[in-house]
Design a protein around this nucleic acid. Structure first.
Lengths: 153, 153
DNA sequence: ATATTAACGACAATCATTACAATATGATAA
DNA sequence: TTATCATATTGTAATGATTGTCGTTAATAT
């Protein structure tokens, strides 16, 4: 965990940015909430616990910066806000999401799964893929438990 | 094309909604711009050509209604606005998009391609998929033409 | 320790979207 | 046909997320 921040610090420096205390606090909040999909406001509130003087604009600027450096990914699940999600270290592509339309939970799929599909798209559409976004909407395992009725389509 | 509107009219009626002139004008704009990915504002400006008295709020409400009826899908490519895209008639799932990071063009992929992936997700994560969103970001065929350098990864 | 310059914080401004309140429309029952 | 009632519409105000501004602060190299 310590080394994770160190590496992010190096990434910042390589791109000529500084790791200020505010940025460090923001990154550490993101690391502590790796499972979640926090909005900028969420991050702001959490960072304020560590650095009460921090401004909302700074959080926005930091998140934008981290997005640019591909440390986080900015995602949008259709509610009004952008959410920020740490990218797995070294991951070439963004991971996928399962959004439950019952309870709203968001789970992550780290596996790529899209290898074949991407090959087809590259070949058939002559499109050079750099990244992707894949989100499934449906009923999560927790919500369908208990509702053991198999719908016959 | 005439029948397409008729069928949408029936869908509205089945759901206890009326096809008012404003709604008809909005739908017809969407049909005429099936290839595009219009924002609410875009739709509003185009509808105003046919029905100058229409209000922006009505366009928003109509788009919301059509989204609810799955006549259109609301998508978000990360710029600040929601965009609306006619669903292929009878399509169970939403089609995919190719967003060019050079020129900003958005192309559509009507083929499903995700059959195998969805099966894996349903089985491994016990998630009952209802819909999906898949967008690839990269360089479109038009932009890579001329730049015939094959990057050696 | 100081200079340079990026970064900050507070707040104003912007932009998309939604809420509201008054009016209009259109179907139905008398 | 006309009164009635529910739904739809309009213009505008309100909201809420995000971005811009600007004077101040602090990180980094010397």
């Amino acid at each position: 965990m310590e080394s994770r921040i160190e590496r992010i610090k190096k990434q910042l420096h390589n791109a000529k940015y500084k790791l200020t205390p505010q940025r460090e606090a923001t990154v550490s909040v993101l690391l502590e909430h790796e499972e979640d999909h926090l909005s900028a406001e969420d991050v702001y509130l959490l960072v304020k616990d560590k650095s009460p003087e921090i401004g909302l604009a700074t959080v926005y600027r930091t998140l934008e910066l981290l997005t640019e450096l591909k440390v986080v990914d900015k995602i949008n699940f259709g509610d009004g806000v952008s959410r920020f999600d740490l990218r797995q270290e070294g991951a070439a592509h963004f991971h996928h999401h399962l959004v439950c339309i019952e309870c709203g939970a968001v789970d992550e799929i780290q596996e790529d799964l899209l290898g074949d599909v991407e090959q087809i798209v590259e070949d058939r559409w002559n499109f050079r893929i750099k990244d992707h976004r894949l989100t499934f909407h449906g009923i999560c395992s927790r919500c369908s438990e208990g509702n053991e009725e198999k719908e016959s389509e």
